[in-house]
Write a protein that binds this DNA or RNA. Structure first.
Lengths: 182, 182
DNA sequence: CGAGCACTTGATCTATGTCAACGGTAGTGG
DNA sequence: CCACTACCGTTGACATAGATCAAGTGCTCG
């Protein structure tokens, strides 16, 4: 009874906070996690990008701590592949989680344009292409307003830092090529 | 050759980024972690409070990822106690790290006074007492300026949300009792 | 065709940053 | 003991990045 890979569309919920489930490896896409308070109010908690492990905590509790939703089209593979996670695999996950947390913290400090660019860099693949989430999602991650995001993205475009490209199945305002790779 | 517990004063470095060392349990106090870039520039990465594990990543790499420094007086005990960490202990650490990361992210969003109060709550012990770090450290954590922190702390005091108390060995401007426990 | 949604853009407001001055305290050295 | 300095914290006056409010565009879907 090995579980099947799973794909999701942008905006859809992958799992609810507190629901039962297993762990996955995010093979492709970007996932947003939210803490859900007792009163139902949700606040942005973390981000997973391609290669990250999702729902590690189910190995301990059997249910998810955060609500997860897809920011772009995603593909999820069952994890761990073999069926059991060994010690050093877990340590690697822990290390990655710490790094990711530090990166996300950096996206909430300093000048607005630097934060947005930081997020774009984080989401850019090795080929230099990005599919951005909606302006509102970027706003939630960076703690800015969607109007501010809109202005900044447009300005980065005018400054030729990013260049709009067309990928099919994706809104024209969301796929870009990043000029300065690093 | 079991390692000894260790204590540190506020402001002192516990370990450098990249230096060799082992893992600890923070028995008492508050520790700040910073990412250190290649150019030497440091940026706030995370926080450990009493009970947290520090330097888990040394089990994998043998050296620390972040720079750690004491924000208050700290006591560190060697970890894991038995000598080896088992699977579920690591999972618990991972879970705690995720939660902590989400909490810290929340301290960088929304109104300035709510952020500072959020940090104060995070640092308050079960008896309702807090020893705050320096204004500048609070500013680094919340991405505000120390003048702003100073104004907010004073205002919380005027509003009777916090009440200054005197603990010896601690600056008079840093120890408080929190009025509304939760 | 109309409704809804994501995005853009302009005008204005305000929370927080910035700069500057000052006060208290601990340490240091005469 | 008294200067003298260094450091942390407080407070005021003013500047500004980004929030807020409002209007308009273009797309998709029924």
């Amino acid at each position: 009874m090995s579980r099947q890979p799973r794909t999701t569309d942008p905006g859809t919920e992958i799992h609810a906070a507190g629901s039962a489930g297993k762990a996955w490896r995010l093979a492709e896409g970007v996932v947003r996690f939210d803490s859900v308070a007792a009163d139902g109010h949700a606040s942005f908690a973390s981000l997973a990008i391609a290669g990250d492990i999702i729902g590690c905590e189910t190995l301990l509790f059997g249910c998810y701590t955060f609500r997860a939703s897809a920011l772009t089209h995603c593909r999820l593979d069952p994890w761990p592949e073999g069926g059991v996670a060994d010690n050093s695999t877990l340590l690697a996950s822990l290390h990655r989680a710490q790094q990711r947390a530090a990166d996300l913290l950096a996206l909430r400090g300093g000048q607005a344009s630097a934060r947005v660019l930081g997020l774009i860099r984080l989401l850019t693949d090795r080929s230099g292409r990005v599919v951005l989430p909606m302006r509102q999602e970027i706003a939630d991650i960076t703690d800015l307003r969607f109007e501010t995001i809109s202005r900044i993205v447009k300005q980065l475009e005018r400054d030729r830092v990013i260049r709009p490209i067309r990928l099919d199945g994706v809104h024209a305002t969301r796929s870009f090529a990043l000029a300065s790779p690093r």
